[in-house]
Structures are given as structure tokens and as C-alpha cells.
Amino acid sequence: MFAAIGSSARNVDKSNFGKVDSSVMRIGPMNNYMLKQIVDAVTAGKSKQADRARAIYAWVAFYIDYDCRAHHHPKQRNNSASHALINRKTTYEGYANLYKTMCELAQIKCEVITGFAKYTPENIGLVNEKNMHAWNAILIDDTWYPVDATWGAGQTDSKVKSFTKTYNGAWFLADKELFALSHYPINKKWQMLDTPFNKAAFSISPIIGPAAIANEVYPVVMRGKIRGRADTSKKVAFEVDNPLLVRSVSVSYKYREIAPVPFTIEDNYLYVDIPFEKAGKYPVNIYINESLAYIYNADVAEPIKRPKPKPVPIRTEPVKRSPVRGAG
């Protein structure tokens, strides 16, 4: 029997996650330890399933790096959990396999999910083998939730040549709708939504950043392309569950470093004014509370060229006046 899939991650108590992350950092990488010893150490004293699963997520994300070289040589990859543990680096499949193995050692049911993921603006509109990915689903209190330890560990550059270690907890028990806009499983049931997105909706949607999940900000229009005209601004709308979470909004793109932009919130809708300074096609990054929330591809037309008004001719000769006629 398939467990519940429609429940939101808001039903999970996340209040201890910060303390869990800190405890895992204090434990450290535990080099030369067996996997079971590591699992026992990071989950010790944690009675809740969600806290134990978070501890494993944090350890994997903190201490396993992404293997960019192996990423480009799929036939030479070793995606086993043991290889990831020994070498302390792996690709997305290795992250998913390691997380599953560690969860099972902690008596947490976990599945490896394969499919496609979008993480750069070049991915918008594309679903092919170049954006293949793997992540996990875990069963917490009889409900399935998505987890991506690869994205929790950091990010690569767009060509997957270098990896930057930056821990991010947003991809653990992430909001299922936003997760489904960035991860498309081959088996659609693992979207864990009552009404799953189709591949076309996934393909054209914007890139989802961790701040969208952390602040519960949802796109009103699913298209990841916005059109505008230079020297004007474009208003983009989002739905927000808790408007008080949104303290600042900034934008950056090819011709503009990150800088604040005007925004308004009305009836749980966030409206962001994106100024277009130059024509062209380029990605637009939207930040909420100084963290990346969305990436769109902008198609900005040249400004409208209005015809210059014709100059009014100036008379240079004196005006001849008619003689004044007297009465009578």
C-alpha cells in the first residue's frame, strides 16, 4: 500500500533542525569510520524520525563533495554508497544511494528517485539526458517527502567543471509543489502531488531557488520566460503563504549587479518590479531576503523609438498688419 503523498511538509516539526545541523557539524566528518558507526553517532539522542533523517542529510551534505570529473565520464562512475564514503565525493546518483543506505541503517524507509532536474537558466525549456538527476523520498510518520542531498551540499558552475561547497537545508522535506517544478521523476507518483505536473509544465517553469522554498513563495505564472522592453519595467507576481517572511527583494542580471527593486504585497500576492536597462536575451535572478529565489530567462526588446517633433518655423520678417478701419 502506498503511503500518504498529499500532506505538506508544514505538518512536520522543523523546530529542531538548526540544532540538529549544529550537532552534526560538531561531530565532524568521522574519517575512517564504518557507515553504521557514523549513522549511530549523528542520530544519537534524536527520538523523532524527521530529526534523524535531517541529521543524515546534514552529514552527507557537509562532508561529501560533488565529483565533477566523474560527472563527465558516466561509464567510469562508481555510484555506490561505499565508494562515496571512502572517497568523500560522488555524483548525484552516489549522493542518493548513500543517503538511502544511511537512512535504512537508521530504520527510516527511503527510496532513490531518478528523473530530470532544472538548476540553470539553460535548462528552461529542455528535458533531456543532460539534466538527468537522482534524489530521494523518505517516509516520515506514514507520509512521503522529497529530499535532495546533492543540492543540499552546494552547487557546480553551469558546465559542471567546479563545485562550491555551500550547505543548504531547503532541499530537505521541501515544499512538494516547488520541488516538483525543479525535479521531474520518471515515475510521476514520486511528485507526491494530488495533481502532478506534466513534463511540459516542468520544462517551461522558472528555476526554483532555495529562498522560494524557505519563504513559501510560489510563481503565479508557470512560464520561465518573461518579455519586456528596454527602459521599462516588468511586474512579476508570486503567491506568498506568509507575507511577513518577505523582508527584501533584489534582482541581478547581465547588465546589473544585485540591487534592491520595488515590490508590493497585497492579499498574499507579491508583486516585483523588474527594471530592464538594455535589450537582449539574458537570465534574471530574483532574490528574497538576499537569497536566490527564482531565475527567469528575459527576452527584452529595443525601446520604442518615438519620432522627434518637427520644429516650429520661426518668422524672420515683420508681420504686415492690416490698417485699422474706423467706424462710420
Rank of each mutant, 00 (worst) to 15 (best):
I295T: 15
N78D: 15
K89C: 11
A153S: 15
P318S: 10
G280Q: 12
I108T: 00
T156M: 07
N168W: 02
E290N: 14
A170F: 01
R223I: 12
R88F: 07
D194Q: 11
M1P: 14
T166R: 14
S7F: 03
Y167L: 09
F62A: 10
F116E: 03
K159M: 15
P303Y: 03
R10F: 08
Y282T: 11
F2E: 06
A180P: 00
K48H: 07
K14M: 03
K14I: 02
T264W: 02
E290Q: 13
K188N: 03
A153D: 09
Y269D: 03
V39D: 12
Y253R: 14
A180R: 02
G209S: 01
P210Y: 01
F276A: 15
K176D: 07
I304T: 15
R315Y: 03
T156E: 06
K75H: 15
A84L: 06
M222E: 11
T91H: 08
L181N: 05
R88W: 11
A96P: 00
A58F: 00
P219L: 03
N11G: 07
S233Q: 15
F197V: 09
D194A: 04
S7C: 08
D157V: 12
A327V: 10
A237W: 01
D273L: 12
K19E: 07
V261C: 04
D273P: 06
Y145Q: 08
V39S: 06
P185E: 01
D273F: 07
N168V: 04
D175H: 01
E104W: 05
N31Y: 14
Y271C: 05
I314G: 05
D148W: 01
K320V: 14
A214G: 04
N131Y: 05
R26D: 10
Y287E: 10
R26K: 12
V24L: 03
D157S: 12
P283S: 09
V272T: 10
Y218E: 08
M30C: 10
A134D: 03
A9E: 13
D21W: 03
R223Y: 13
R325W: 06
S162G: 11
S8I: 04
Y271I: 14
I113G: 00
P121E: 12
H183W: 11
R77W: 02
F276P: 00
N11I: 09
N242F: 11
R88I: 12
K254V: 08
N136I: 04
E129W: 01
S158E: 15
V284F: 07
M1T: 11
L245T: 14
G94K: 07
F202V: 07
Y63L: 09
T90S: 13
P206Q: 08
G18K: 04
V221G: 12
W144C: 06
K165D: 09
G125N: 10
I314C: 07
L292I: 05
L270R: 00
G125E: 13
Y99N: 08
